[in-house]
Structure formats: structure tokens, C-alpha cells
Amino acid sequence: MSEVILEVENLKKYFPVTNGKLFGRTNYLKAVNDISFTIEKGKTLGLIGESGCGKSTVGKTIIGLNNITDGVIKFKGKDIGSLNNKEMKPLRKDIQMIFQDPYSSLDPKKKIGYSVKEPLDIHNIGEEGERQDKARQLLEMVGLSYYYMNRYPHEFSGGQRQRINIARALTLDPELIICDEPTSALDVSIQAQVLNIFKQLQEKFDLTYLFISHNLSVVKYLSDDIAIMYLGKIVEIGDVKEIYKNPLHPYTKALFSAIPTEDPNIIKDRINLKGEIPSPLNPPSGCKFHNRCPHKMKVCEEVDPNLINVDVNHKVGCHLYK
């Protein structure tokens, strides 16, 4: 049994929303609503779902950019969910994040060499020469020449900027990297190159990834396990091969039916969901998917299903399988 490096238990993140009136009622946007999962060391968990389902909020809450509303986040057995910024600083060396937009993640006024070595400056690791050497090594490791160190972010393409962000994330030798849709802003050909870099770095440094994406093919290529989110909740989670081979939740089936086939002569039966995604400000009672589900039953409108085991490493939250 591999070491569990990250445990998320019953995580909730609600954002208060007011109506603008002085004594108006405060509602809560339930971006993440009671989710649990674990990631083993050296493995990748792919977190997928439609835009607005809360997957990016999960990553930002784990790394401490959002305060948790409720639940527990454990890194290597230590509860980190309630730590303040000062207490969290030493853990920044072990947990890093790569953001979706490679340009806004870099300071446009700073040269690339400075951006890559800056984490070493903040944590006061090594001498200046050693920091410069490590920055050069990391840039070359992600496919960029060391002489780019004196250039600014605007002088690079989107794919090159994301490589720089990957190098910066590796500066402190982290164990866990949260990847928030790191390839969505890149061209398809560049996506493949960046994904191969992720694979190579994981094998070389035994890295653990939480890979957040809405690209199902990307997640299938990179992940060991996947979790499917809908309206702030995980509806299916398990081994990536098992779930792609045998998706159970109606929402998962609809998502997978949208994946293009490799053979253009093969026509897939596309599942077209009817209805609109409910607002997380006012989610429906019972199963959050019932207003769009083709298999809706009376119990779906009244009871929110829990995740249940349907196989050794396959869980689904649906009344069809109780």
C-alpha cells in the first residue's frame, strides 16, 4: 500500500453573497459542498467537470488561497486546513500550484531568471550563485535554454510561459503539485509537449499531482484515478481505467459521450442533457443532477445520494446503484 500524501475529508467552501442592501439577507454560494478523496504518493488524481463545478476552488482551498468553511485537509497526516499564512509558509516548499493562465502567473516587470529563483530567495535557501544555477537547471529541464533567463514574460509564447511556471513550481523540490487546468490556454500541439513534461518530471522526482481539467482526454492520459464533480460534489471517483471502461453515473456517461473518437467513421451515441445547470446559490434538493437526469426517480428529488462502493476502487453517488 502506497503512502497517502493528501487526504481531503468532507471539504466545504461557501462564499457569502449579499443582495446589496444594508440589512439584506446573506446567501451562500456553495462552490465545494462536502467532498472527500485521497491521493497516494507518486500518483495523479484527475479532477474533472464542467466550468463552474468548483474544481478550481478545491485546488485553491487545499493550497490555502481560500479559507475552508468546514472539513479537514491533511498533508502527510498533518491537518493543514486551519493553518494561517505564517504557519502555512514552511509547507509551501512541499505543496506548489500551477495556474491556468501562464501569463498572469508571471510578474511582467521581472525577468524569467528572477521569477524561477524567487522561491529560493523567499525561503533563504542557498547562496545567490547556487540559486542562479538551480534556475538554469530547471529551465533546461523543461526544455528552455538558460540564456532565456534575462528575458521578460512578454517575449515568450504561451507554451514557453507555462514551461517557466512549471520550472518555478519545481524550485523548492515539492512533493505535491496542484495543476489548475495548466494546458487549457495552449494549442493542442503544445498541450502534448507540456503533458509529456509533466509525465517525465513525475517519473524523475516521484511527484504527486492533483490535475484539474475539463479536458477528458488529457485527464485520461495523465491520471491514475479520476473524480467527476458536478455542482460542488463528487458524483463518481475511482481508477481511471475502470471508470473510462465502465462509467456509471448518468452525468459521467454524458461527459464521456462527448469525447471525439479517434476513427472519424465511428459515430458515437451522444447523450444530450436537457435543462440548465442549477445555480450553486440555490441548488436543488436531493440529487443535484436530478433536474437534468434521464433516469430521474422520486427519491432523487428528496435524498442526496452518498458515494457507495461498486468495485474495489470505484465509487458512485447515484440512487440507481443502491
Score class of each variant (00 low, 15 high):
S82T: 05
E87D: 14
L138V: 05
Q137G: 13
L120P: 08
N84F: 02
I98F: 07
K134P: 14
E118V: 02
E118H: 00
F99G: 11
D94M: 07
K93R: 15
Q96A: 05
G113P: 01
K89N: 14
D133W: 01
S82Q: 06
P102A: 06
Y103T: 09
R136F: 14
H123A: 11
K93S: 13
V116Y: 04
I73K: 10
Q132F: 12
G129Q: 11
D94V: 02
I98Y: 05
L120N: 03
A135C: 13
Y103G: 10
L138F: 04
Y103H: 10
D107H: 05
L106H: 00
L91H: 08
K76V: 09
K89H: 12
L106D: 02
N85A: 15
K134I: 14
L83E: 12
G126L: 07
G129P: 10
R92I: 06
I95H: 04
H123S: 13
Q132R: 14
K111L: 04
K93N: 08
E127C: 01
M97D: 01
I112L: 10
K89M: 14
K117D: 04
I80C: 08
I98R: 13
P108R: 05
L120I: 08
F99C: 11
K74L: 13
L106C: 07
S115T: 07
G113L: 05
G113R: 00
E128H: 09
K111D: 03
H123T: 09
R131I: 11
D94W: 01
R131S: 10
E87L: 10
F99S: 10
Q137K: 10
P119M: 04
K109T: 03
N85M: 15
P102V: 05
V116I: 15
E118T: 02
Y114H: 09
K134L: 15
S105P: 05
D133H: 14
G126M: 05
M97E: 00
L106T: 02
K86M: 15
P119C: 08
N124S: 13
D94Q: 14
G81R: 10
